[in-house]
Amino acid sequence: MSNAATDALWRQALWIALAVNGGMFAIELIAGVMADSKSLQDDALDFFSDAANYAISLGVAGMALAWRARAALFKGITLLLLGAYVVTAVVVAALQGSSPEPFVMGGVGIAALVANIAVAVMLFRWRSGDANMQSVWICSRNDAIANIAVVAAAVGVFGSGTRWPDLIVAGLMAALSFAGGWKIVRLAMAELRTASTQAAVHP
């Protein structure tokens, strides 16, 4: 398949992923507030972060390696910051939060899981591309894993009657953000070094 056709498919996939993540951000944020669930609210923020990252990827699609690497670096840093925010929110909730509503958590978590699996399957073919493409795949993969955890947290909250399963899952989601963000940052930095070397050799 030609590069032009591949780029067209890549852009189409990004537009679909952007629409899905933007819609799920709004749904999960409202449901997370209504259910008083930290894991749902944190997952909603992850949807928002991913939607923004897909928009950035659309902006740099087809551009030089250095620009794509800079976009990936920004996305990696965003994931690290999101992880830090989630850790802070979990600590605050542990000190003063109440037990969330498990049925809303579970229902919305399942809907989000279906959406994220569909996006992850769609983006699977680009999982070994450049840092920018890999960052998109990592985000979609992390989201699907996080949604499985949210559903598990809902079952845990229902069974225990406490908020701890919700907070534990939110903490695991933070760890996932840290791991994914660090991997993207390393890939992006390596590509920036490659682009710098290429520019020096071929000014």
Rank of each mutant, 00 (worst) to 15 (best):
Q96R: 12
I77C: 00
V121H: 07
L172F: 09
Q12F: 00
E28Q: 14
S57W: 07
G97P: 06
G76Y: 02
D43K: 14
A115G: 06
I110N: 08
I16D: 13
G22V: 04
R68M: 01
I27A: 12
P203I: 15
L73R: 15
Y54P: 02
N21A: 08
V136P: 05
A93N: 08
D36L: 01
L192M: 15
N147Q: 03
D166I: 12
W15Q: 11
A55R: 13
A170H: 02
I27L: 15
S196P: 04
R68N: 11
I117Y: 10
L45C: 06
F178C: 13
N142M: 02
I16S: 04
F47V: 00
I16G: 01
V87M: 05
T88S: 13
Y54L: 01
M24F: 12
D46R: 09
V119A: 10
N116M: 04
A120L: 14
M34D: 14
G129V: 05
L167P: 14
G59N: 14
W10V: 05
L187I: 08
R127M: 07
G59Y: 09
G76C: 00
R186Y: 07
I168K: 04
K75S: 09
V150L: 01
L172T: 10
T197M: 06
G180P: 10
I138V: 06
A144L: 09
I30W: 09
A152M: 04
R163D: 02
F74E: 03
Y54K: 03
L40G: 00
A51H: 02
I117E: 13
S57E: 00
D43R: 10
A55I: 00
G109Q: 06
R141Y: 01
